[in-house]
Design a binder for these strands. Sequence first.
DNA 1: AAGTTCATGCAACTGAGTTGCAAAGTTATT
DNA 2: AATAACTTTGCAACTCAGTTGCATGAACTT
Lengths: 136, 136
Amino acid sequence: MKKSDERLKSRNIKPTAMRELVLKILGEQDVAISLPELEQKFEKAERTTLYRTLKTFEENKLIHSIDDGTGSVKYALCNETCQCHPKDLHVHFLCSKCKQTYCLNDIPVPSVNLPTHFTLENINMVVKGICSNCHK
Amino acid sequence: MKKSDERLKSRNIKPTAMRELVLKILGEQDVAISLPELEQKFEKAERTTLYRTLKTFEENKLIHSIDDGTGSVKYALCNETCQCHPKDLHVHFLCSKCKQTYCLNDIPVPSVNLPTHFTLENINMVVKGICSNCHK
DNA sequence: AAGTTCATGCAACTGAGTTGCAAAGTTATT
DNA sequence: AATAACTTTGCAACTCAGTTGCATGAACTT
């Protein structure tokens, strides 16, 4: 059995050709990718299928989404043990020059003390600036 | 001269009737408001004008925008001294029940140590959960 | 008063995301 | 192996936020 198959099955996702392909592409990215960008990686793109594939992946915590404020939500692979709990979350970085969105996997989202009777489910933290690549 | 006039002028925004009205509405909100929501506060709404008004306000740091991931960007008044620098920023809270977006003005966005050669311009931090109102 | 600049209103468009439905594929049942 | 039940895929159509061009109108300049 393929490794990608196992990865899908471990998240309770039925491994279809499409899904394996999308997983493969996601694995090749070093930055987060949007649905429109993913679409462009296919010759004959089927927006809906890709859309639903991403939804399925996200629901099953194989990937996480980042709203970086660019108008299209980005997606990136979770690590194998990720449960998408607040403690699993990392900071994302959007370069205002190259518009790439990086997962800063080594930088956990800092905890915040919410006002009384506010409870925490999730945190989306996007830092905007210039990435190391664009400083060269 | 009206107080709202002064507030606009202090930000180098020419005070028109429209702008004063929008400023007034923004001042009445205790949560951040989106363009579509703002539109609904008018009988005869002119989307474009409101859109450009918000743009102008934001460019001149009278208001700040929050992308809370709901699909429509929210806006809220800055305080008088705000320069929208990273140190001026506060955390925002999106209630997943009532969908209201709160400015947690008392909670500054925590600082993060970026990787080498990454520089900071801005931070968007949105905490999602249940607000005190929805816990009642 | 004429000219310039800026704000407003209208129409039209873009692009991301989403849904319904039918066809194709997969899995389970007998 | 044949049927039924379910899931995934593909297509078309649509929604909705955001945006732009252009013409009109208001305010300000000289």
